[in-house]
């Protein structure tokens, strides 16, 4: 009976010890991860301060080119792209009335996917 009592007391103690050691191991692992990442993060952070927030230096002509570039793709570039990648769709596109072509180009400029553009061209062509 006495032996049994000792066993009952020992069991939870062993379990508790096990849980604590698992928790300690987890804490240690977490600390190791944090120790590994924090110096890296602080090194990255101090290095970032050395970067100037500018694009590569351009001469004035190139600056103008870049400024106009942000206005969006030209119809010519769009049509070239369509012709290169989807010749069939381009053939149907060319047969559309001017207004429909302009509308499709506007959607392309606003970021419509090429799948949507192709579908729209076929819709406009068939209807």
């Amino acid at each position: 009976m006495a032996t049994q009592t000792i066993c009952f007391i020992r069991m939870p103690v062993i379990r508790l010890r096990h849980q604590i050691s698992v928790l300690l191991a987890m804490c240690l692992a977490a600390q190791l991860i944090a120790a590994d990442e924090d110096p890296y993060l602080s090194a990255i952070s101090s290095e970032a301060a050395k970067v100037e927030a500018t694009a590569p230096e351009l001469d004035s002509d190139e600056v103008n080119a870049t400024e106009s570039a942000t206005e969006g793709p030209s119809v010519h570039a769009f049509e070239d792209d369509l012709k290169t990648r989807y010749m069939g769709t381009f053939t149907f596109y060319k047969r559309l009335p001017r207004r429909a072509r302009e509308e499709i180009f506007e959607e392309y400029k606003d970021g419509a996917s090429i799948d949507e553009i192709r579908k729209k061209i076929m819709d406009r062509f068939l209807n």
């Binding site: 002509d61 190139e62 970021g111």
Partner: peptide, 12 residues
């Protein structure tokens, strides 16, 4: 960011 940007190389 919602606008079209021309990606090219420096021409100089």
């Amino acid at each position: 960011e919602g606008r079209s940007v021309k990606v090219q190389r420096v021409q100089d």
